[in-house]
């Protein structure tokens, strides 16, 4: 029973987090350009190994952000191993991040009172 409860809890949490994928990625890019797996790994590490952003979710988020001119991308020139695509946040992206962060802080305050 307890096991089931935890599973459901994790599922809901991940749904909640998914809605914030764009902002999470923008937040990570605030500190510098990053490539795909680096983002996945940082999400995992920064969440104390509790949240795994899957490839498909991350990739579709990156494409959406790129289409909305919030990030730009370029292929790196790795001398060894495969080439990687890097993402860089734009001014629009920084603004979007600040707005989303502000909205989240506001929502968080409200939820803290209500839940």
């Amino acid at each position: 029973m307890l096991y089931t409860a935890i599973m459901i809890d994790k599922h809901i949490t991940s749904d909640l987090l998914r809605g914030h994928t764009d902002t999470i990625i923008l937040g990570l890019l605030m500190s510098g350009d990053k490539y795909g797996y680096e983002i996945t790994k940082l999400v995992y590490e920064k969440s104390d190994q509790t949240y795994q952003l899957n490839e498909a979710t991350m990739y579709s988020s990156l494409k959406r952000l790129e289409h909305d001119s919030r990030i730009t991308s370029y292929w790196g020139d790795e001398t060894q191993g495969g080439r990687r695509k890097y993402y860089r946040i734009t001014e629009d992206g920084r603004t979007a991040y600040r707005v989303n962060k502000h909205n989240w802080d506001a929502a968080k305050r409200i939820l803290e009172h209500l839940l």
Binding site: G36, Y37, E55, Y59, G82
Partner: peptide, 16 residues
């Protein structure tokens, strides 16, 4: 283009 980038991500993960 899509598979190229995803493949590079998956390979990075696998290697890690």
């Amino acid at each position: 283009e899509v598979t190229k980038e995803l493949l590079s991500n998956l390979q990075d993960k696998y290697t890690d």
